[in-house]
Write a protein that binds this DNA or RNA. Structure first.
Lengths: 347, 347
DNA sequence: GGAAGACATGACAACGTTGTCATGACAATA
DNA sequence: TATTGTCATGACAACGTTGTCATGTCTTCC
């Protein structure tokens, strides 16, 4: 039926232990053997038996911890994670949590108590929750965090940085370049560092372009449509009215678009709107949204790859598995995508 | 750390095999021993090790098979499945597939070859692919299908029905009730039965309302934004122009909305548009979409519950587990949600 | 040139469980 | 009473993997 490690060993003409070593990327296997084993494994379509592996102690599930909403983000992440995990012989367990409910750690305990979890992939806001991170650290768990680059980078665990600051700077600078001077910023919840980082990038770009900060144009709120719509309603009542809105994500931007439409403000002629994330529906609004593209699947794949490397490193004793194979860079910078919701400032 | 079967055996003063027998409710264990073993198990808070058990044969994973796109649908399904699976002691494995690529079965083989999969949850279009279903049936696998009610209901496996036909009838009847006579239908790919069923419901409602079918108003295409936009562009060039569009899902509807906007056709005053699915963005368009709400999480939970029941029934030999516990009804009918994209026909 | 280390590989046990068979006790039958 | 059958229980192997240790080979350094 299904090929076992022994079948592979037989075909490759080595001991089954050597196959185990190759599969787990342990150092100190000859190159020729390595190749023979991989070839044999491929030919037999070998997949390690997770149960057996777990039984022996090494758990081989990666748990993906995420907050409920924001479905396209989650789906893209899942795809990236799945691809990388499968490629490396791990399975993915998805574990949505509600950021609101207080007993996050209790919920996680239960997940971990099964003893099958080799590591965790954390997304905001969990990846930026110091109490949670500390608890995980004390339990000596492997995890990787996907965070905003503004976060303190001096960590022992692997960490993937998304440079929200720079991307926000790029966006705001682009708007300023179009002649906009009254640029509003609609943030998200501040427990998401990305919201803070995007605001900081926005502020830096204003300064660089010699634009004075107007606190009335910086409206705190939530990462969702309704919050975007409501805040835009208030912005449009200001005198003088802003000529551009930088929304901290596409959902907020969609809400802004909606409100502009209600109040018969022409986008982009009278009001430019920029989102963030390049979610699918940013291409399905009218006008199509200018936004910053975030390669979520790649980010997730990178996270998985770093996490697995860290798990393996700790298994083979810490010594320099450095040469094993190059890990992808752990920094990402979302790229501005110009569509139809922005244009030069009126007059 | 965790108590094993041997610890229990030691405490109860029996062989570990006897404990195994008691735990698995095998017959032929003395009553006194049975009690001693249960007491010991309880005292040590014994939980069988799933990995070890799987290694020996029994599997306890449910795999969720779905097509890539349509992310909110997938996420909602996942949540429903997770809740039910966890509650029943199973774990969920997600497995996206590309409906386009030819070797679906080959991909599945690989998943199944691990031997950890107790059953499959299939969504369209996989749940409606006869070749695939046949292959699964021959492999004697447990699975549950989520399909359109138009599907042939005489099956041996559990099946969850979504009554697309009736929901589409409701929508079309509602439009007719608003005085619309030229109602267009924008379908999806016909390998999705739901597309066919929705068209059939549309046709039936036209007939009931004494409206002649105009083939020019029934435009085949795909379940996505671009296809909706393109087809609407063509519809708007017709003479006389349709006064309402029934789109087979929200994405198509969003495309229709986009095209109407481009061609400066007022929605809903000149053109009513209805979607299907009630995806989050149907509340974030302008105007907000009238659509049919589909309780995806509930549907998924129901599917999991039926699947697990079927798995358990086959394990304990087939005999009458009928009284075990009531299963939820396996039929769902999406409900019309009226928002702002529809109104009485002009004139 | 010989000793000491580094490296590559293999033999074997162990993980916790269930299936198979063997054992012994006791009851039922001839 | 001797024989067979049934029942309760236990000993042991097996599942597929990884960790530990042992073995052998090839460098390197004095």
């Amino acid at each position: 039926m299904k090929a076992t490690i022994k079948d592979v060993a037989k075909l490759a003409g080595v001991s089954f232990k050597t196959v185990s070593r190759v599969i787990n990327r342990e150092p100190s296997v000859g190159d020729e053997l390595k190749e023979r084993v991989w070839a044999a494994a491929k030919e037999l379509n070998y997949q390690p038996n997770i149960s057996a592996r777990q039984l022996r102690g090494a758990s081989s599930f990666i748990a993906f911890i995420y907050d409920n909403p924001n479905s396209h983000y989650v789906i893209e992440m899942q795809h990236g994670l799945l691809a990388e995990c499968r490629a490396q012989g791990y399975e993915l367990l998805i574990h949505p949590l509600s950021a609101g409910s207080g007993d996050i750690m209790a919920d996680l305990e239960q997940l971990l108590s099964t003893g099958h979890i080799a590591g965790l992939v954390l997304t905001p806001p969990f990846s930026e929750n110091p109490a949670l991170i500390d608890a995980l650290r004390q339990r000596q768990l492997h995890f990787v965090r996907i965070v905003s680059a503004s976060d303190d980078p001096a960590e022992s665990e692997p960490c993937i940085y998304v440079d929200d600051y720079q991307a926000a700077f790029d966006i705001t600078d682009y708007l300023a370049g179009l002649g906009h001077r009254r640029i509003a910023f609609l943030g998200g919840e501040d427990i998401h560092r990305s919201s803070v980082a995007r605001r900081d990038g926005y502020l830096a770009a204003l300064q660089q372009n010699g634009i004075a900060v107007d606190q009335a144009l910086i409206v705190p709120g939530e990462f969702n449509f309704d919050s975007g719509a409501e805040r835009t309603r208030r912005l449009l009542a200001l005198q003088p009215v802003p000529t551009a809105i930088f929304a901290a994500n596409d959902e907020i931007a969609a809400g802004a678009l909606f409100s502009a439409r209600i109040h018969q403000v022409a986008v982009p002629q009278e009001l430019s709107i920029v989102g963030f994330e390049d979610s699918p529906f940013s291409r399905q609004t009218w006008p199509k949204l200018t936004t910053a593209h975030q390669p979520n699947a790649d980010i997730a794949g990178c996270a998985a790859s770093h996490l697995i490397a860290s798990i393996r490193a700790s298994r083979n004793g810490s010594p320099g598995s450095g040469t094993d194979q190059a890990l992808p860079a752990n920094g990402f910078r979302p790229q501005l995508v110009v569509r139809d919701s922005t244009c030069p400032a009126p007059q």
